[in-house]
Design a protein around this nucleic acid. Structure first.
Length: 580
DNA sequence: TACGACGGCGCG
DNA sequence: AAAGCGCGCCGTCGTA
């Protein structure tokens, strides 16, 4: 029997005395092996040494605070535990049997998301607020260690330690990915973007002027409505003008406008499209968010209650499809773009163990599979029905199709129906790995209770029932959307590690500094719920594509061992994104 | 003048 | 076409 000396598994990071950075290297069982402090200017180098020598799990107060400076110095951490994100999950997961200690550590209860980040701002490691905290969470090493201990205890005593560990690892990997993607940026072709804008709107006008084509189209609307000074940017005024012109609409939304036949309608719809493009992704956006050929949005991991990412500034999750051609690889590089087909219904099939639903999607388009199984007549019906099942559709086609799905996919439908019922009762639901939905607000519960009292009026009862159904639709979707987010995080986490193992390509292939810490190798560049884009040297594109596929298979096996559900990808290697 | 609500629309 | 879920961002408008 050989006893090996304990090896470092974790390195806890915080602030020490006199502005120094404190490190605690710990063994598997939490025993401290080494405790030291470094000066801030030595920190990236020391982190690199520890990373290379040990490859620990880095326990960080908040990866969003710590990673930028490390990445600036070219240091990439392979694994971390983000205490801020983990706290949010554990403090309200129903799998945690006793979350009191966590909830009492109120300094870790931070707002849902960070403020929009000024893209010009530097990445100073520490900007202390009045309470001596950075990024809203405590940084002092003693408090960092205390929180880490609370979290480990909470997980160990939970009903499902292994699931929660997976969730926290995935969430933390996501935090690293977000920091790295922000540092790397998305390769963006400014000239192509400008060309698309000019094509649609006319050439870039002088400051605050309306682009020429847009002005023409606006003039056509005013002429058709015989209102020469009408402001088209004010829905109420446009609505009044439309009604004066004899067009009976109740709003100015495009789908309602599209139903009417009037000479003002086509130019108005076109104007609205143009205005949207100009204000959301026009030249001003380009100036603000794209620098040196890179678009750097601010991702907010865990920013949505379901666990999806949000974004803050730059509109990372809303890039219009028509601008996709501006996404272009560097010369000699490629974009490896992949999205998962019907991620949410597949996740539902897997988590519910619904074999019929798994079979419908096996190796093919899930909606077509539903048609082939004779459940509905058309792919469109299948899609509307499935979306209705996931979102709680009660009208039109989905109301007609959902009962048929309930008959043929009873286990899948029971899972979402149960989640809805739980939500309507005011209960809490959880994702596959244990992220729990927020409890109802106090006002909601009060309204539900009072509507049950004998003297409650008809209107009050109806209002309460409607808000119960609203909440039911939220919890119905929460379990699926949240589990899909977990699948996507697992996918990215595996992919990230695989790409980090790619060799750096020779200098000649590295046209522009690229990738995490600007190593010239394939790296993640974009993520959107069920889609990733890898920016890869041409020589690594095929290998990156294989890694994307393997990571997707791996995510399925990790979350749903033994499940027959597959997660097929639509994958393309291109120099420029297609418009789609 | 500042700010939140809201309409509208982009994304999954 | 939207519907049924989750977002962010822009501009307007009413109110403080």
């Amino acid at each position: 029997m050989v006893t090996r000396p304990p090896t470092t598994r974790e390195c806890v990071v915080g602030r020490g005395a006199d502005g120094r950075i404190a490190l605690r290297e710990q063994a598997e069982d939490g025993i401290t092996l080494r405790s030291h402090e470094v000066d801030p200017q030595d920190w990236p180098q020391r982190a690199r040494e520890i990373e290379d020598a040990v490859g620990p799990r880095w326990v960080l107060p908040d990866a969003a605070t710590w990673c930028p400076a490390l990445l600036d110095a070219g240091v990439v951490l392979a694994r971390c535990h983000d205490l801020r994100l983990a706290h949010r999950i554990l403090a309200r997961s129903v799998l945690v049997r006793d979350a009191r200690a966590l909830r009492e550590a109120s300094a870790w209860e931070t707002p849902e998301e960070t403020a929009a980040q000024d893209p010009q701002r530097g990445t100073a490691l520490f900007e202390l607020d009045a309470a001596g905290r950075t990024g809203g969470v405590p940084q002092q090493i003693a408090e960092v260690l205390a929180e880490h201990a609370r979290q480990q205890e909470a997980v160990a005593q939970s009903a499902e330690p292994s699931r929660l560990r997976l969730l926290l690892a995935a969430e933390s990997a996501g935090a690293l990915v977000a920091a790295e993607m922000h540092a790397a940026g998305i390769p963006w072709d400014v000239a192509e973007h400008d060309r698309l804008l000019t094509e649609s709107l006319g050439p870039r006008p002088r400051r605050d002027q309306v682009p020429a084509r847009m002005a023409e189209v606006g003039a056509a609307v005013r002429a058709a409505l015989e209102d020469p000074i009408l402001s088209l940017d004010s829905p109420p005024r446009v609505l009044r003008a439309l009604r004066r012109g004899g067009i009976d609409v109740s709003s100015t939304s495009q789908w309602e406008l599209a139903e009417h036949d009037h000479p003002a309608i086509p130019p108005l719809l076109e104007y609205k499209k143009m205005a949207r493009l100009l204000t959301a992704n026009g030249w001003h956006w380009l100036d603000q968010w794209v620098h040196e050929g890179r678009y750097r949005p601010v991702y907010v991991p865990g920013g949505v209650v379901t666990g999806r990412w949000a974004s803050s500034g730059g509109g990372a999750l809303q890039i219009p499809r028509r601008l996709r051609p501006a996404l272009r690889a560097d010369p000699g590089w490629r974009l490896v773009s992949a999205d998962v087909s019907q991620l949410e219904p597949r996740v539902l099939a897997a988590m519910s163990g619904d074999r019929a639903m798994a079979a419908a999607g096996a190796g093919q388009d899930l909606y077509s599979g539903i048609v082939e199984a004779g459940i509905v007549a058309t792919r469109q019906e299948a899609k509307v029905g499935v979306l209705g099942a996931l979102y709680g559709g009660t009208t039109g086609d989905s109301a007609r199709v959902v009962p048929r799905l309930r008959e043929r996919f009873p286990r899948a439908m029971r899972l979402v129906d149960d989640a809805a019922a739980e939500g309507e009762r005011g209960g809490i639901v959880s994702t596959w790995l244990g992220r729990s939905s927020p409890p109802p607000e106090e006002a909601w519960s009060t309204a539900q209770r009072s509507s049950n009292l004998p003297d409650a009026g008809q209107a009050e009862q109806e209002r309460a029932r409607r808000s119960a159904r609203d909440r039911g639709r939220f919890t119905r979707n929460f379990v699926v959307q949240g589990t899909a987010a977990e699948w996507a995080l697992s996918w990215m986490a595996a992919l990230r590690l695989a790409l980090a193992g790619f060799p750096a390509v020779p200098e000649s292939e590295a046209a522009t500094p690229s990738g995490p810490a600007f190593a010239p190798r394939a790296h993640l560049a974009y993520f959107l719920h069920d889609e990733v884009i890898v920016h890869a040297p041409a020589s690594q594109a095929e290998a990156a594509a294989a890694a994307v596929r393997e990571a997707a298979d791996g995510a399925g096996r990790l979350l749903f061992p033994g499940s027959p559900v597959d997660f097929p990808l639509d994958l393309q290697i291109t120099e420029r994104q297609a418009e789609k």
